[in-house]
């Protein structure tokens, strides 16, 4: 009997505890939801505006319930004068993809060198590489403009690719260096004894093990190159202009075509979003977990 009594008391205690817990848990979710809404709201406005008709855009109070239309997208792509948005989208893709690829490949090799070899002035060199990010980009705009001009590379893809690669390299090297140093050296030594050369070890052992690092630096580099505006604005006019440049010029030449403007904005966000989602599954942590001990 006593045992039964105790157990029912136990049960009550359990209920009381969880009852005390619920308002706090709910509150937490509420706060999180409000914050998420706050962050997503601008994006919501961009996308919905792009999908509205012109009357709906300027309606006051705002129309929450509207019939979406792709008219603005169509206009932006095919109707508006000059080059279509697709032209700039392709420019952006080429420049971002190539500069990201080159930065990650070169950066991974440099990072491996920093992580695994000792050479004179290693620390100074590493610091110098990071220091390239210290100054605000705008400080270098004039000398770089002059360099690009003298090289006859104004309004060319290669100029932006080189500059973005250089800017991303320091980030890639510093992040990947940490990833490489976390690989137990014995794994590479084992491969050395097994008959692999240093370069083969880099490709076949080290690189697969830092995949999460490669993916995250590639995403960060791509986002940077995709969104960079200042250098693209100054160094390109038409042939090599990227989406941000096009977007900036949009309102001036066409008046305030809000629907089309937001449609291009939506299109500008999508590729990087798709890229990030596609790579996300490789962002698993602890790939080396289980290798040792």
């Amino acid at each position: 009997m006593t045992v039964g009594l105790v157990r029912s008391k136990d049960l009550k205690a359990g209920v009381r505890r969880s009852a005390a817990a619920w308002p706090i848990g709910t509150l937490r979710y509420l706060v999180a939801a409000i914050f998420t809404g706050f962050c997503l709201f601008p994006f919501y406005v961009i996308v919905t505006t792009a999908l509205k008709t012109e009357t709906a855009i300027f309606a006051w109070p705002p129309v929450w319930n509207f019939k979406p239309t792709l008219q603005s997208f169509y206009n932006a792509l095919f109707v508006f004068g000059g080059r279509s948005a697709i032209f700039y989208l392709i420019n952006s893709v080429i420049i971002s993809a190539v500069s990201t690829f080159v930065a990650v490949v070169l950066g991974a090799m440099a990072a491996y060198g920093f992580a695994r070899f000792s050479f004179a002035g290693k620390r100074h060199l590493a610091f110098w590489i990071l220091s390239t990010r210290f100054a605000p980009p705008v400080a270098f705009i004039v000398p770089i403009y002059l360099m690009v001009q003298k090289a006859g590379m104004l309004d060319s893809h290669i100029a932006l690719i080189l500059i973005y690669t250089a800017m991303n390299l320091s980030l890639v090297i510093w992040i990947l260096r940490g990833f490489f140093s976390e690989i137990p050296i014995e794994i590479e030594e084992a491969a050395l004894v097994d008959g692999y050369s240093r370069l083969q070890i880099f490709w076949r052992v080290a690189l697969p093990l830092v995949r999460p690092g490669i993916v995250s630096t590639a995403i960060l580099s791509a986002i940077f190159s995709w969104n960079e505006f200042l250098y693209a604005m100054v160094l390109t006019q038409s042939k090599a202009a990227t989406l941000p440049v096009y977007l900036a010029g949009f309102s001036n030449s066409m008046g305030l075509a809000w629907g089309e403007y937001m449609a291009v904005g939506t299109m500008a966000v999508l590729p990087i979003l798709i890229f990030t989602f596609a790579l996300q599954k490789h962002l698993v942590r602890g790939l080396t977990f289980g290798a040792v001990k």
């Binding site: 084992a190 004894v193 097994d194 083969q200």
Partner: peptide, 29 residues
């Protein structure tokens, strides 16, 4: 020489078969 390390130092991105065949697949061989 064959070397076994204190912390095993297996290749975590490969399965057991991949680990065992890794030395035999060295480009030099």
């Amino acid at each position: 020489v064959g070397l076994a390390f204190q912390n095993y130092a297996l290749y975590p991105h490969l399965d057991v078969r991949g680990n065992l065949s890794f030395p035999l697949r060295a480009p030099r061989r």
